[in-house]
Design a protein around this nucleic acid. Structure first.
Lengths: 203, 203
DNA sequence: CTTGAATATTAAACATTGTTTAATTATGCT
DNA sequence: AGCATAATTAAACAATGTTTAATATTCAAG
């Protein structure tokens, strides 16, 4: 085998993912192109296509990295409090915080659309599952007695809402900064939803 | 002026928008291309670029059409009930219903991203405003006494949540059909959030 | 009714995309 | 040392958005 710069296939992948992440941070996901990434790591497109199936594969790897980063911060936030409700508020805050401080990366994760027929790989889906599991655990802490189905439902409902607020905010489609900060919207959602949902279980 | 087929500039625009909508419905927004649209209406790209600034302008027009359609159905749903809470539930249902029955069009509206620096035109923003106004009115019906700021906040919070559920659902990222239907998630969100929010105002 | 100016329309070009191909170059093994 | 293997590249392909110069058509003036 002929390696020009003593770069393992794994090293190459890692370099490419790093370069992709840089481009995303700098120019957004629209700025990513195979040639640009290749040039940034000192190779040619052909080499890139030896390390990745296609451009979606590459972007998916970059996005998985972002998801892992985010998951880390969410876990920190989760651990930071023992009070169940406070924990959820912190979790939501951390989500918004991450979306805010990594706007381009975060947008890349949720705006990148796969061509139809392209199945999300397991190693990627696993990250999303871990995220939802965290939320589920948090919700369970609020109502330990309720069955799994109810908890999963509430977790998905709540987190879809949190996600929606962050999406509309980072996309500037919420444009309500003069009315209320996105953070206060988040708090409103989490507190009111969980308050009513948890009390329903106790009647 | 030389017209080949007696088509006004306005007619041309209308034809192009129709063609774009068809392509979106058939192949999704990724399937839209200037040449394809031009061919569908029997003209060349050059002519298309005489009628529209660029491809984003064209897509924006197609999406505005979708928004108007949706607004129409939401207004129908809104009128369909006098009970304030029931009205909000119907509104949310109609939103999900529309997203479901016009998946490609709906996705096109919310997945289409403008190049940075591109300002959303007024006639487009007006549609989104009208949508939010409808929700705001609905929320106001639930707590007429509360000030404008509180109502706007609740409306944005709630609708961001509704939107989040619809996004994750149509993007198949919710994958909880076996746990709970997206409709039940919606109901859970609307009822619990509004229940707690409205009661807060009465204490 | 003809001629000229204005403009709608097209064909062709450009740069940039993702992806594939054949050719080249470097490596490790026999 | 030389051969097989595999990494790397250069070049090509088709398709994208957009612009250009050329062509064709219409309208208005003479």
């Amino acid at each position: 085998m002929a390696r020009r710069n003593d770069h393992t296939r794994e090293e190459l992948q890692s370099m490419a993912i790093d370069a992709t992440r840089s481009i995303i941070a700098r120019e957004g996901i629209e700025g990513v192109s195979a040639r640009k990434v290749a040039q940034d790591i000192g190779y040619t497109v052909g080499t890139l296509y030896q390390a990745f199936e296609n451009i979606h594969d590459l972007v998916l790897h970059a996005n998985a990295f972002t998801l892992s980063e985010m998951l880390g911060e969410l876990e920190m936030a989760y651990m930071g409090s023992r009070d169940p409700l406070q924990r959820m508020v912190r979790l939501a805050d951390a989500y918004l915080q991450f979306a805010n401080s990594h706007q381009a990366q975060w947008a890349a994760v949720f705006r990148h659309s796969l061509p139809k027929g392209y199945v999300v790989p397991d190693w990627y889906q696993a990250r999303i599952d871990a995220l939802f599991a965290l939320v589920e655990n948090g919700v369970r802490g609020l109502a330990p007695k309720r069955n799994r189905q109810a908890i999963q439902g509430a977790a998905r409902t709540l987190w879809s809402g949190v996600h929606g607020i962050c999406i509309l905010h980072t996309g500037d489609k919420l444009y309500s900064d003069h009315i209320a900060s996105p953070r206060s919207l988040l708090h409103s959602l989490v507190k009111h939803y969980l308050h009513s949902w948890a009390s329903e279980g106790k009647r």
